[in-house]
Design a protein around this nucleic acid. Structure first.
Length: 114
RNA sequence: UAAAGCAGUCGGAUAAUCGCGCCUAAUAAAAGGUGAGGAAAGUCCGUGCAUCCAAGGACAGACCGCCGGAGAAACUCCGGGCAGCGUGAGCUGGCGGAUAGGACCACAGAAAUGGAUGCGAAGCCGGUAUGAGUGCCGUUGCGUGGUUGCAACAGCAAACAAGCAACGCACGAAAUACUACGAUUCCACCGUUACGAAAUGAGCGUAAGCGAAUGAAGUGUAGCAAUCUAUGAUUGCACAGGCGGAAUUAAGGCUAAUCGCAGAGACUGCCGAUGGAUUGUAAAAUCACAGGCGAUGGUGCAACGGUGAGUUAAGAGCUUCACCAGCGAUAUCGGAAGGUAUCGGCUAGGCAACCCCCGGUCGGAUGCAAGAUUGAUGCAAGCGUUUGAGGUGUCCGCCGAGCUUGGAAAAAUCGCUUGAGAUUAGGAGUAAUCCUAAUACCAGAUAGAUGAUUAUCAAGGAAUUUUUUCCUGAACAGAACACGGCUUAUGAACUGCUUUAUUCU
RNA sequence: GCGGGGGUAAUUCAGUGGUAGAAUGCCUCCUUGCCAAGGAGGAUGUCGCGAGUUCGAGCCUCGUCUCCCGCU
């Protein structure tokens, strides 16, 4: 789990990020980027796995945790992008059968891309 | 040994690295503690808890439904009864009432619990085509037979006889096709278009509400109107019908032109003891005679108790009998449901997981997005303040100043986890469950923690072989106020008891 | 988390316990030089699934799966 200052929490913040509509896609994950920031606060990140992907909460939580863990390791290795205020990661049903290594790699590619 | 039944167990463990929520303590860092299930799921029941409305009454409504016990309560659990299923261990059960009443029981059937029509006899009516075949002093042809004539070895001609074939005419089984006088059903039009009461609101509906005519609810077809002799009588008019179209039917149809039968069983049937008729010397026989019967056949899920015997002309719960089912009474066993025995009368269709009736229980509504506190925002339109908005399941009644809609804004804290609780030990009880003592405090998130990677092992499987190798190392599934149940999902394996079958001793 | 509504033909929907229907679509034929329109005929169903009540369930009852809507 990420420390609190990295989490994107408010519903309005989510809506604001979606409205900018700056999206990238790779390997089953779509990301929405927010506005470019002008202060030193850390980039806030949200993870979304909708009910359409799987009915059961166990499977959805598993994907969410894997994505979060991958992003946390990237923070530690100092590979993240700090241009934006907020980023949202949206999973698709492709990720159901994938392992941790695959997810980490795709997130790394996406973060380099933006 | 195999196959079953029941009751249970388990739902992994350890270590390393990097992380997250909460608590303790704290300036901060570091540290310590702690962190998902048997179903956390479905939200199907029942509670606590919270808010709103409540003086109460009536009516709805919901739920329950063999007996006893447990439980805060429950579409809950335990034990027993009864019924059904199973060879059995055992399993299943929404298990009050059909003589209070209503609805329904398709098709078939004479008839579905009483619908008004149905059935039998007699009489009348009832197509066309194809067509095996049958018939005809029918016509034509063929060959055969004898006869007559010519000729006479051969042969030719004539009429006759029976036969065969084709054609024609008439009849015509089964089957097929077509049409539809009639019949049945449906539709359209014309005609008819009834009964039923009333402003003191008929009535209908649980209630809100509907409701005087464009005819409520109901009835579902026979009465209605007038008169006087007035609870009846007389008269009149009605209850009809007409026309057209579509479908089905070639089998039956029709009879208000006749006679008879049936108010569970008219059809198919059995009988003909008694009475009658006929035949016969008589014995006896026959009868679509009077009649007796409800057994047989048939229809159907179901036909007015079942099976067998006796009785009888034939028969029948017939009240004569045996067994069974059902109803009632008495005795007895049991705490009760209920069981057992004896006796009596004589039979009640199904359906209440349709309405309903009987007995019982229930203050109602909304759900932690309940609600409380702090802070912020407080705009517009409509309705309303005793001529009453709105609220309480509905009405009576009561409360009484705000309410509704749209837009904007929606942050923090509390509620929040010490409990109908957990673990261990002892006791009561067949059991559900209850009592006593000790021990500890054991998730509390809010875009929502409980995670990622790796190694070893328990456990299981396969191969080789007698200790090695390889594989799997899991299924269903993630708390959101809490608890008690129910239901559903769930990998591999293990334990105990019981039943049945087979083999051996 | 709490509450409510649905599932019937390829699609949209009807359906009083007694033979499963309508419209559109699809297929064949007619019509036309061809197409459309029009006319005639035809096919298409696990009534979401599993049990129960009943002589008999699309309909009644219970369980289950799935879809949709509202409360923020």
């Amino acid at each position: 789990m990420l420390p609190k200052e990295y989490r994107l929490k408010k519903r309005t913040a989510f809506n604001a990020t979606y409205r900018i509509n700056n999206t990238y896609y790779h390997g089953g994950i779509t990301i929405f980027c927010g506005k470019q920031k002008d202060n030193l606060n850390p980039t806030k990140v949200g993870f979304v796995v909708s009910k359409k992907i799987h009915k059961r909460a166990v499977k959805r939580n598993r994907i969410k945790r894997l994505m979060r863990e991958a992003y946390r390791q990237l923070i530690k290795e100092n590979k993240i992008n700090t241009k934006y205020i907020s980023i949202i990661f949206v999973a698709s049903s492709k990720l159901l059968e994938k392992n941790f290594q695959y997810i980490k790699k795709t997130i790394e590619i996406l973060v380099e891309k933006i």
